[in-house]
Each structure stands twice: as C-alpha cells, then as structure tokens.
Simulated scan of single mutants.
Amino acid sequence: MSLPPLTPQIPRAYVDVHVIQTVPPANMNRDDQGNPKDAMYGGVRRSRVSSQAWKRATRMHFAQNRPEEDHATRTRGVAAALTEKLSTLPGVPDEESAARLATSLLAPLGIKAGKKAGDTAYLFFYGQRQLDRLATLIAGRAPELLALSDKKREAAIAELGVQEIFRTEHPLEVALFGRMVADLASLRVDAATQVAHALSTHAVDLEFDYFTAVDDETRRRNETGAGMIGHIGFNSATLYRYATVGLHQLKHNLAAGREPNAAWPATVAGVREFVTSFARSVPSGYGNSFAHRTLPSLVAVVVRTDQPVNLVSAFEAPVRLDGESIAAISAMKLANEHAKVTERWGEPASYEAVVHAFDKEPATTVEEALGAGQSFPELLSGLEAHLDRTFSEGSA
C-alpha cells in the first residue's frame, strides 16, 4: 500500500500561546524527593511545572471532550490492546489465538519487545481508530491466518500494509505532540507543538504542610495520638506558561491519509482544541490535597510567520512582592516584552488577541500591546477566522 500524496503545504506559521496563571498552595508536579519542581532563573529560585506534566494535562482535557474512538493512548501494552480487539472477531476462538494474531500484525512494525511478556520496549503512541483499522485488515481472514505457521502468517500479514496504518490518519494528539520510535524511523511523527516548562514570574520558597490523620476508632475508645503523621512540600506561584503550534507541521501531520479537502478544517479545529485545552488544563498532582485548579488571569494568542517567540525574558528580573498584584504586574511585563520584541525585531505578528481579568493600568498596558480584551470564546472564534482567511489553500 502506498501513502496518498499530502495536500499542498501552507506557508510557515506559528500560533504562540502565552498564559499568566496564579495557583494557590500546590504540589502539582513533584520531583524525586516528592517536592514541587523548581528551577533557577534570573538568579532566584522559581516554581516550575514540567512541559511533560502540562502536555499530559492537555491531552487528558482532550479526552474529556472527544468521543472514545478519537482518543489516542501511549502505552507499552499495544499488543494486549490489540489482542482484546481481535478476540471479538469472527473466527478467533480464544484469547491465545487473538494474541498470536496480534503478535503477527505488530511484527512488521519492528518494535523491540519489552522485558514483560506482551509489552513493547518503550511507550508507543497511537490512535484508537488506527487500532480499529489494524483489526479490520484481517477481518474475515482470521481462520485462514491462524492455520498458518507463525513465519508464514507474518509473511502474509507483511503484505497488508501495517506500517501505513500508523503513518496515516493520525489522531490529533499524535499530530500535535509527535511520536518517537527509536527502532523504525518511518513511524516517527514530528511534533507540531512545543511546550515550555512553566515558571513562576517571581521567586518562591519551598514550604511544608505537616499533617496528622486521626484514627476514628481510637477516638471512640478515648485513646490519644494520631493514626498517621506526614508532610507534603508545596509552594504557591503566579506562572508564565508558553506553547507554540507549527501550523504547517500540524497540517502536514493531519493530511496523511485523509481526504485533501479535510486536512485544512482538521488543522484549524485542532488549533482551537489545543488552545482550549492548554488554557483550561491543570496537572492533577495532589489535587485532592490542595484543590489547586484555577483559570488563567491572561491568555494571549499571537500568530507569527517568522518564528515562535517565548517571552519568558520578561521575567528574568523577578516580580517583587511590594503589595501590588503579582498577576497584574506579570501581565504588564509580558505585554511590554511583546511590544519590545515586535518593535526591535521588526517582525509584527499577523494576529494578536487577548483574554484578561484586569482593569485600570494593567488592562490599558495589556490591550495597547495585544489588542482589546475579549471573552475566551471570542478569542477562539477570531483565531479560527484569521487562520481561515490568511492561511487556507485558497488564500495562500
């Protein structure tokens, strides 16, 4: 099976997403000691949330809003998942037969086996629809294939185009975040999205919550003492978060195996979903202990055609705690940095939009740099309209 040709590429363009978000005491992303991750920046210790943690939170938000068949999963257990799916096919008598078929179907991928039976050597990222298509390859042929020796079965399946299934019709998560397969370059998908580690705009100190848990039964017996004692590290911070989507790469990833006229609408819809989920998601670490879920104070979207620009340099000099709102000062510093980059490098953005929760001087500063404040649904609709108007095949 040969791959269908990709649709024409749009000009190179990037959708930058800038977020200012304040979180209360929390430990949403812990290090190997169980404490919140941090980093030195601008000579002071900052709160940090890793890009991996926020990418996973974004993916989990996708899953809440998409049908099951559109989900993607990253697992070592692709063979077990395929075995379960094949066991429902007509002509597959038992789970052992389904496992033999699954092993033969996955053999053309060339992925190394893991230490545990049925596992791959590393996590494999795929879509549920891709696994369904893989099962469809042998629908109606299961008895014939099971009658063959393992070697002959693998040879027969090798002619069916297993690799092409995982190279086409990628789910949005794979198209956005990419897939690395060390053993087989042809299965790699270049990520369309880059996500920065979130950093606090100010210095932070690590604090500890010493807690005790009462044994209810000892209280009834009038006994004293705690049933459990412990501590949890935490900090609170106003975070600067940044991500960028390569519009051209996302369209390239989504185009493979789809109808040519479907690639661009899928790209625009994918950008909208990413911006929505990136803005609204929060890593869930110790969520029951801290209930730290908040919404951003500012979300700005900037479309550029030169290169993506992370504006973290706005906070190299940390925001000082002088009684003013840290979020408001952070928003003004971000807006000023954006204006300065645009002026000094002479590469104006093709589109700017902002949602914020400020008034008076912070609101004026933000809106002079990034446009009039609007609601989040208005930002998303305006972004979609701009992308369609500026980058669709008809206007490229």
Rank of each mutant, 00 (worst) to 15 (best):
D119V: 00
D119T: 09
A121T: 06
Y122D: 15
Y122E: 14
F125K: 03
Y126L: 11
Y126T: 10
Q128L: 04
R129P: 00
R129W: 02
D132S: 12
D132H: 04
A135R: 04
T136Q: 10
L137Y: 03
A139K: 11
G140R: 05
L145N: 09
A147R: 00
S149K: 01
D150E: 14
R153V: 06
R153H: 03
R153Y: 04
E154L: 05
E154W: 06
A155C: 03
A156E: 15
I157C: 05
I157G: 02
E159M: 12
E159N: 04
E159P: 08
G161V: 05
Q163N: 11
E164K: 06
F166P: 05
F166Y: 11
R167S: 10
R167M: 11
T168K: 03
H170K: 04
H170R: 10
P171F: 08
L172H: 04
A175C: 11
L176H: 07
F177G: 07
F177D: 01
G178F: 04
G178D: 14
M180V: 04
M180I: 01
V181D: 09
D183S: 14
A185Q: 13
S186R: 02
S186K: 06
L187D: 10
R188P: 00
D190L: 01
D190H: 03
A192I: 10
T193V: 11
Q194A: 14
Q194Y: 02
A198P: 00
A198V: 06
S200P: 03
A203P: 03
D205W: 03
L206V: 08
F208M: 10
Y210H: 11
Y210V: 06
T212H: 03
T212M: 08
T212V: 08
A213D: 06
V214F: 01
V214A: 13
D215Q: 13
D216Y: 13
T218D: 12
R220T: 08
R220D: 15
E223I: 13
E223Y: 09
E223S: 12
T224R: 05
G225D: 13
A226T: 10
A226S: 15
G227C: 09
G230F: 06
G230V: 07
G230Y: 01
H231S: 12
H231F: 11
G233V: 05
F234L: 08
F234P: 07
